[in-house]
Amino acid sequence: EETGVRVELAEEDDGEKIAIKLWLRIEDIKKLKGKYKDNEAIEFSFDLERDVPEDVAQEMVESGYVCEGDHKTMAKAIKDRVSLIKRK
């Protein structure tokens, strides 16, 4: 499903790190509610043992990086990427 958002690794995952750096990349602004630039990327750290995707997305909303209306879309994108990383 195309959401307009993609999360990718910002650094090589060696399988050892607990906290990883990720990029939340805006790919299609028409599919989102907030005002973003095409190909805008937000770099953030995610602790694989402690962080919760919904909470991280909420922090982005509170910091003004993400529109409240896009919270669920961002949280799902983060959750999907993190579950792929954890499965390795």
Rank of each mutant, 00 (worst) to 15 (best):
Y36H: 09
M60P: 02
K76N: 11
E12L: 09
L24H: 06
E16A: 08
E49R: 08
E8W: 04
A19H: 13
V52E: 12
L24N: 07
E16T: 13
K21H: 05
D51A: 01
V66T: 04
I42A: 03
A77I: 11
D80M: 00
R87Y: 07
R25D: 09
K30D: 11
D28L: 02
H71K: 15
L24P: 15
K21Y: 00
R81A: 12
D47Q: 00
A10T: 07
T3S: 15
I20M: 10
D14T: 09
G15N: 11
V5Y: 11
K79D: 10
R81T: 09
D14Y: 08
L9P: 06
E43W: 04
E62A: 11
E40C: 11
H71G: 10
I20H: 07
E49D: 12
L9R: 03
F46D: 01
P53N: 01
K31A: 07
K17A: 14
A19M: 14
K31S: 07
K72V: 10
E68C: 05
D47A: 00
A77P: 02
G64E: 03
I42N: 02
A10V: 10
A41I: 15
M74H: 03
K79S: 13
M74F: 12
D47K: 06
L24A: 12
E59F: 07
Q58R: 13
K31Q: 07
D47N: 13
I26S: 12
K72M: 14
E11M: 00
S83I: 05
T73M: 10
V7L: 09
F46I: 02
L24E: 10
G15P: 10
V7G: 00
W23I: 15
V56R: 02
E59P: 03
D70C: 03
K31D: 10
E27T: 15
I26W: 05
S63L: 13
I29R: 15
G4D: 04
L22R: 07
K33H: 13
Y65S: 10
V5C: 08
P53V: 06
E27R: 10
K72I: 10
E62K: 14
D13M: 12
L9E: 09
I29Q: 14
L48K: 04
E62G: 04
E68A: 14
E16L: 07
E68G: 09
R6P: 03
E27A: 12
K21P: 04
R6Q: 07
E49M: 09
Y36P: 03
K76L: 09
H71E: 11
R81C: 13
D55E: 13
E68I: 07
K30C: 09
E43C: 09
E12P: 14
G69T: 13
V66M: 05
G4Q: 04
D51Q: 03
E27Y: 13
G34W: 04
K17L: 05
E62T: 11
L22M: 15
K79M: 07
N39P: 07
E12T: 12
R81F: 12
V56G: 00
R50T: 12
G64L: 01
I42D: 00
E11K: 07
D80A: 08
N39Q: 10
R25V: 14
Y36N: 06
A19K: 15
E54C: 05
E62I: 09
L48W: 00
F46G: 01
V56L: 06
D80Y: 05
K76A: 09
K37G: 08
K33W: 03
A57I: 13
D38G: 12
C67D: 15
K30N: 12
E54D: 11
E62C: 08
L22Y: 04
R87D: 06
A41Y: 13
D28Q: 01
E54A: 06
A77D: 03
E12V: 11
E11R: 02
S83M: 10
G34C: 03
M60H: 01
K72E: 15
I85D: 04
L24S: 11
L48I: 12
G64S: 01
R81V: 04
I26G: 12
E59S: 13
W23T: 15
E8N: 04
P53A: 12
R87M: 05
